[in-house]
Amino acid sequence: MSNDDLGAGGGTADWGADDGYNDDKELPPREEHTDADGVKHVVEWSINEDAYAVKTTTLTRTTKKSRKVSRGVATRKSWAKFGECSGKAAGREYGISAVSLEEINMEWVTPAGDSEEENSDDERAKADMDIQKRLKMERFKIKQEERRRGVNNWAQLMSLEAAARSGEAGPSLGDGDGGGGGPGGKYVPPSKRGGGAGADAVGDSMYQRDDSATVRVSNVSPSTTEADLEELFSNFGPIRRTYLSRDRVTGESRGFAFIAFREIADAGRCIDKLDGYGYDHLILRVEWAQPKEGAPGAGIRPAGAHVVGRT
C-alpha cells in the first residue's frame, strides 16, 4: 500500500499535535528486507478509522519446488482466468476455494468377522447391558419415590415438585388430575427432575457425561492436530474421545484439549508422565479436567486415582 497520500508533510505539523499519531503526522515509510533465513519482512503503516496508526508486519517465506511436467501442462500453467473469475488475481479466490480447516482422516473399516471387530462388538454389547441395567434402576427408584408420596400420575408429581420449589402451597392431589396443563404443571428439564427427591439421587443421572477419566491438556502448540494428540496420548491406554478446542471462526487451535480415557488409571499415568513434557517447542500442562460447577458426578473420581502409578 502506498502511503504518499496519507502524510501531509511532517514539516508543517504543529508540535502540539505531536503527542499521538493522527492524520497530520507522516507515517514511517514501508520497510522491506529479507533476513538470513530467506524470510521477507514487510512493515507497513496505515491509519485506521479511529485515527490510530497501525503497524502491520508481514512475514513471507517463499520456497521453490520444481516438478517436471509435460509440455501441455506447462502451457496451461500460463492460462489467464476467464468467465466468472476473469481478471481476478492468480491464486485461490476468497470464498470459492479453500483448504479444509478440519483434518479429515480416512476411517479404516476392518472387515466383519475379524477378531478385533468381534471384541469391540462384545464390549459394546456389555456397555449396552450396563445402560439398560442403570435405566431399570432409575425407573425403579422413581416408582418408589412416587409411591412414597402417594402420587399416581406424572402430572401430579410435577405439580407437587413445582410447588415444593416455589415454596407455595401445592394444589391438593384431588384437583391435579386435570391433565398436563394443570395449575403449577411447569416444565422441568430432565436433568432437574427428582431434584427434591432426596440426597440419595445425586450422581445417578443418566444424562451426565462421566468426565472422571478425562484430562485437560493446555499449552498445546497451534500446529498440533487431534491426530497428533491421539498419537501421543494413546500410548497410555485406549481413548474414548479427543477434543481440541478451536476458534469457531478461524478454526485455529485455542491451545487446550480434553482427552477422555476409558480407564482412570490410564489418565492418572498420563498426567504423571506428560505434565511438564516438552512437545513441539512448548511445555504441556496436563491435569484432571474440572467438571462443571455443581454437576453431579464431580465426586465420582476415587480420591486415590491420581496417585495410581506414582508410588
Binding site: W79, K81, F82, E84, S86, V99
Partner: peptide, 16 residues
Amino acid sequence: RPTVWRADTGERLGTY
C-alpha cells in the same frame, strides 16, 4: 456454468 479448476491448488481457472 461448467467450471474448470487447477487440480493442484484448487484455484478456479474459469467458467464456461
